[in-house]
Nucleic acid binder design. Structure first.
Lengths: 207, 207
DNA sequence: TTCATCCGACAAGAAGTCTTGTTGGAAACA
DNA sequence: TGTTTCCAACAAGACTTCTTGTCGGATGAA
C-alpha cells in the first residue's frame, strides 16, 4: 500500500483492459462452439463459463445476460460477413463471385452457419424438425405441380433446389409481411408471393 | 355405489371422451392465440390453462409437455393447409391459383401465419429481430448489386420482393445443407446457392 | 332435494437457471 | 521470497417453471 499503482498490474503481458477483452473473446468463441453444437436454448451460462475458463462473475461483467452474449456473437458474425462482402463488391467481383464468396464465408466454419441460420436459434430440436418438415412438404408439392405442368428445366437448373429456394423465399416474405404490414393489408402479401413465384417460375423454365 | 355405471356421467350433454376432446380443442385454441401474440417461449403452461379454462392437471392429461402441445398445434395447422392445397390441386387449379390459395390460407387468420412462420417459434423477440436485420441487410446488398449491374426488371417484377425472396431462399438452402450434408461437402452448397441465384436472376430480368 | 361424480383451482415439491457474494490460489512485482 | 492484485472456482439465495397431489364447488342424476 506504499507506492499506489495508478493502473492495474499486468498479467500475462496484458493490462486489465486487454484481459477483459480476452475473456470476451473466449466467451464468444465458446458461445460459437456450444450454441452451434447444442443450440442456444440448451446451453446454460455456467457451461459457457466452464468452456471458456471464465468465472460466472466474469461473465456478468462482460455481458448483461445470455441473450446479450448471443446477440454480440451474431453481431460479430454479421459484421465480419458484411465487411467481406462489401470488400468483394468494391473489388469489382461479378455476381457469381459474390454468391460464391458468400458461400465460402459460411463453409469455412460451419459453426458460423449453424449459429446464424441453423438450429442454433431454435427453441428445441423437435420444433426445428417440425418446421423443416413443413418446408420439405411444400417444396415437394411445388415439384409435383411443376411435374404436372410439364416444366422443362433450363440447362443448369436443378428443380429440387429451385423448389426449396422458392419455398424458403415465400416463407420469408410471409415473415416479413407479418412484422411490416398490418394484418388487414392482405393485398401486399398476395402480390409479393405471386410476384416472387413468377420470378422463380420464369427463371426455372427460361428458354 | 348400488347401480354401478359402466360409463361416466354426461355433463353438458357430453360424455367423458367428448369433454376431453373439447378440453384439447380449447387448449389448442389458446395456444394459437397466446403463442401468436407472445411467442412460444414466453407462454408458460399455467397461462395456457387459465386462458383455456382448463386445470393444469387437465393439461397434463392431454399433452405430455408444452412442446408436445406446440407440435400438435403445428401438426393441425399443416394438416389443414396441406389438405386445402391438395384439394385445390385436384380441382385443377393453375399455378397462380395455388399460390393465391396458399396466401389465403394464411391471411384468413394471421395467428396461424404467426405461429407457423413468425416470431412464434423464436427464442426471444430480440433474437428474432437480429435475424431479420441480417436478412434485410442481405436483401439490400443484392439490390445494390443489381442496381450497379443495371438490371432492368421485367414487367410486373418488384425488385425488392425478388431480392427478399432470393435471400430467404438462399438462407433456407443453407439450413437444408447444414442438416442434410456433411460439413465437408461444400460443393453441394456452392452449387445450390449459385443455381438458385441464377434462377432468380434469370426470372428478374426476363426478356 | 340429495348424492355421486367431475374437473378447475389451488398447493407444494422438484428441478433448473440466474445472479451475486466470497475465497483460495496463481501471477506478477519488489 | 514476500506482498499485492486479480480472477476462476465455489457457494448460496431468489426466482421461475414444471409436475403431481388434493380439494371444493359445480353439474347432473335419482
Amino acid at each position: 500500500m506504499i507506492g499506489r499503482m495508478t493502473e492495474g498490474r499486468r498479467i500475462r503481458g496484458m493490462d486489465a483492459e486487454q484481459r477483459k477483452a480476452q475473456r470476451r473473446r473466449q466467451l464468444l468463441e465458446s458461445a460459437l462452439e456450444l450454441f452451434a453444437t447444442q443450440g442456444y436454448a440448451a446451453t446454460p451460462i455456467e457451461q459457457l463459463c466452464q468452456h471458456a475458463f471464465v468465472g460466472t462473475k466474469g461473465f456478468y461483467e462482460t455481458f448483461d445476460s445470455r441473450e446479450t452474449c448471443y446477440l454480440a456473437l451474431l453481431a460479430e458474425i454479421t459484421e465480419r460477413t458484411e465487411a467481406r462482402m462489401n470488400a468483394r463488391l468494391a473489388e469489382g467481383a461479378d455476381e457469381a463471385d459474390l454468391v460464391d464468396a458468400f458461400a465460402e464465408a459460411l463453409v469455412g466454419d460451419p459453426r458460423v452457419a449453424q449459429v446464424a441460420f441453423g438450429h442454433g436459434m431454435a427453441v428445441s430440436p423437435a420444433l426445428e424438425h417440425a418446421r423443416r418438415e413443413n418446408r420439405r412438404w411444400a417444396a415437394a408439392f411445388v415439384l409435383r405441380v411443376w411435374e404436372g405442368a410439364g416444366v422443362a428445366a433450363a440447362p443448369g437448373v436443378d428443380l429440387r433446389v429451385a423448389a426449396t429456394g422458392l419455398i424458403g423465399g415465400m416463407f420469408d416474405l410471409i415473415a416479413d409481411w407479418l412484422v411490416e404490414s398490418s394484418p388487414s393489408d392482405t393485398g401486399s402479401l398476395r402480390e409479393a408471393l405471386a410476384g416472387f413465384y413468377r420470378v422463380v417460375r420464369g427463371g426455372v423454365a427460361l428458354p
